[in-house]
């Protein structure tokens, strides 16, 4: 560093120095950074194993400088179960989108939560299939237009968008459930705190920890990044409120 300059910000050491394939304005980039900052700050790079899904974040292992396994579509919770049961003292996370976690992988998600598997779900809910070009997701909002719901999601035909955080918070052995976002700096800080909580609870073996991120998809939603932030405020948060759904007792923590 040049003399007279002061370092005030840098890429977390556990984030690789590589070109990112996410679209401009997408929350994946922010969430990757926040997660890796937490891994850095907790000093757990050597003890962290991640699982990536099929979806936009299929290449997460290119960006996160930790050991990772790439799962089949929907099976990340089962893969994470296998890893965590073999390596109970490691920090294990699955990083999944809504198609992966809440459509094709619903059974694996719910059963891992019901068993109280001691790993952390990071669930990026952007209400759309981004990677395949903008098709309807299990979390697409009522009336929201996608390439497979060109006239808007018809809940009479396809049902209401799934509320995964609300669902998994019903399980006894799930320890911590919070829905966060990173549409503002304040919310990004809350999201980072939630990630840290989740990994710390995991370290204390309290049960399943589940962070849902009410996320955006400017490309899939056919919006500018700025418009996508407004859509989050106007449409997404009223249906998917940002809140803590479940947390461990103070005694446990």
């Amino acid at each position: 560093m040049k003399k007279g300059y002061k370092l005030i910000y840098q890429r977390p050491k556990t984030l690789t120095d590589t070109r990112i394939n996410y679209c401009p304005g997408c929350f994946h980039t922010t969430m990757h950074k926040l997660l890796m900052e937490v891994v850095d700050e907790m000093g757990i790079q050597e003890k962290t194993v991640g699982v990536c899904p099929v979806g936009c974040s299929v290449f997460a292992y290119n960006y996160m400088n930790v050991d990772m396994q790439e799962a089949a579509h929907g099976r990340a919770a089962a893969v994470a179960t296998g890893i965590k049961r073999m390596l109970p003292d490691r920090y294990v996370f699955s990083y999944q989108g809504d198609g992966d976690l809440a459509a094709i992988g619903t059974a694996e998600t719910l059963h891992a939560c019901n068993r109280g598997e001691n790993f952390t779900f990071i669930f990026i809910n952007n209400g759309i299939y981004g990677m395949t070009g903008g098709q309807m997701a299990p979390t697409t909002l009522e009336g929201q237009k996608t390439t497979t719901s060109p006239y808007g999601r018809d809940v009479e035909k396809i049902g209401m968008p799934l509320k995964m955080a609300e669902i998994v918070s019903q399980f006894d052995r799930v320890a911590y459930v919070e829905r966060v976002s990173c549409n503002t700096p304040a919310n990004s800080r809350k999201a980072k705190k939630a990630l840290r909580n989740a990994l710390e609870y995991q370290g204390k073996k309290l049960g399943t920890t589940f962070i849902e991120v009410a996320s955006n998809c400017p490309s899939g939603w056919k919006m500018t990044p700025e418009e996508s932030l407004k859509w989050l405020e106007d449409k997404v948060f009223p249906y998917y409120p940002l809140k803590v759904f479940k947390k461990p007792d103070k005694k446990e923590v």
């Binding site: 089962a78 994470a80 073999m86």
Partner: peptide, 18 residues
């Protein structure tokens, strides 16, 4: 496991963990 799908993917994870 909850299904053979889950079982085979637990194999993947656990086998991959060595």
């Amino acid at each position: 496991a909850e299904s053979e799908l889950a079982a085979v993917n637990m194999m993947y994870g656990a086998g991959g963990a060595g």
